[in-house]
C-alpha cells in the first residue's frame, strides 16, 4: 500500500539517499570510535600542538596536541547520543499526550493545547539555555533540556494526526463495533501515524544536534573532557587564523549530520505524501 510506493520513492530520491549515506557514515564512525579513532581523544601531545592535517593526523592537531580526527569521531557519539536520547524522551512524553488530547478532545485537549502553546512560545534555544542554567551543565542535563523543549512538537503533531484520522470511517467503524478506546488508540490510530512521527523524529534529531552543539559551544552543555563538536569549535575560535582546521572539522561535522538528518526527514515525508513530492 502507501508504504511500499513510499519506499520506492524514497530510494529513488537522490537527496534522501545522500542524507542517509551521510547519517550512516557518521553513525558508523561514531559507533566504531574505539577502532576508527587512531588516538585517544583526550591524549595530550598525541602530536605537536596545532599541526595542520597530515597523514598521521588526518584533521591536524589542536592547541593541546590532541588528534582532531579522533576527537571529532568521539564527539560524533556524543552528538548522536544527545540527539537520539533527547528526541526519544520528547517522543515518549509527547506522543501519548498528543494521542490522548486528540482522541478524547474536550477539556483534556484544551488544557494540553494551551500548555503546548505556552511551551512553544519560548524560542527553543532560549528555553534550553534557561533550563541548563537551572539544572547545571553536563551531558545528561543537556539531554534533558533538549528533550524538554522538543516535547510540544510531538504533542502538536500527534494530536493533529489523530484529529484528522478520527474522522475516518474505519475508526468510526471500530467505535461502533464497541472496541475499547485503548485498543482503538493502540491498534488503529498509532500505527497509522507512525510514518509521520518518524519524519518528525528525524527532523527533531537534527534540530537537537544544533541545540546540543550550541549549548556546548557556549560552555553550558557537554563539558570537557567529553569531546563535543560545539566545545571544539569554541576553543578553535581563538586560533582561527593559526589553525583553521580546528574550527572547520567539527563545524563541518555538525553541518553534515544536521543536513543528513534533514534530507532523510524530507525524503521520508515526500515518500509518504506524494502530493508534496517535487
Amino acid at each position: 500500500m502507501v508504504m511500499l510506493g513510499g519506499w520506492k520513492r524514497l530510494l529513488s530520491s537522490q537527496l534522501a539517499m545522500a542524507g542517509l549515506l551521510i547519517c550512516v557514515v557518521i553513525v558508523a564512525l561514531g559507533l566504531a570510535a574505539p577502532m576508527t579513532a587512531p588516538y585517544d581523544p583526550a591524549q595530550l601531545g598525541a602530536g605537536l600542538p596545532m599541526q595542520p592535517p597530515s597523514a598521521s593526523h588526518l584533521l591536524g592537531t589542536d592547541e593541546l596536541g590532541r588528534d582532531v580526527f579522533s576527537r571529532v569521531v568521539y564527539a560524533a557519539r556524543i552528538a548522536l547520543y544527545v540527539s537520539l536520547a533527547s528526541t526519544l524522551l520528547a517522543a515518549i512524553v509527547g506522543i501519548p499526550l498528543g494521542l490522548v488530547s486528540g482522541y478524547y478532545r474536550g477539556w483534556v485537549d484544551s488544557v494540553v493545547m494551551r500548555v503546548t502553546d505556552a511551551w512553544l512560545a519560548f524560542p527553543v534555544m532560549v528555553l534550553a539555555l534557561g533550563m541548563t542554567a537551572a539544572l547545571g551543565p553536563g551531558l545528561n542535563n543537556a539531554t534533558l533540556a533538549i528533550g524538554f523543549v522538543t516535547i510540544p512538537l510531538f504533542i502538536r503533531l500527534t494530536r493533529g494526526q489523530v484529529l484528522s484520522l478520527s474522522q475516518r470511517q474505519y475508526i468510526e467503524a471500530a467505535r461502533a463495533a464497541g472496541q475499547s478506546n485503548t485498543i482503538i488508540l493502540a491498534r488503529h490510530l498509532l500505527p497509522n501515524i507512525v510514518p509521520v512521527l518518524i519524519v518528525q523524529f528525524s527532523l527533531a534529531a537534527g534540530s537537537a544536534v544544533l541545540v546540543e552543539t550550541a549549548l556546548s559551544f557556549l560552555g553550558v552543555g557537554v563539558m570537557p573532557p567529553t569531546p563535543s563538536w560545539g566545545s571544539m569549535l569554541s576553543s578553535a575560535q581563538a586560533y582561527l587564523l593559526m589553525a583553521p582546521w580546528m574550527a572547520i572539522a567539527p563545524g563541518t561535522c555538525i553541518f553534515l549530520l544536521v543536513l543528513g538528518l534533514n534530507l532523510v526527514g524530507d525524503g521520508l515525508r515526500d515518500a509518504l505524501d506524494p502530493r508534496t513530492a517535487r
Partner: peptide, 25 residues
C-alpha cells in the same frame, strides 16, 4: 577559555589514576 584549557590538561593528567574531575564553569 584559557582556564578551561588548563583544566582539560589536568583532567587528562589525573585520568590514569582513576580520578575523574568534572568541570563546572
Amino acid at each position: 577559555p584559557e582556564e578551561v584549557r588548563m583544566m582539560e590538561i589536568i583532567q587528562a593528567q589525573l585520568a590514569p589514576s582513576g580520578i575523574t574531575m568534572s568541570l563546572e564553569t
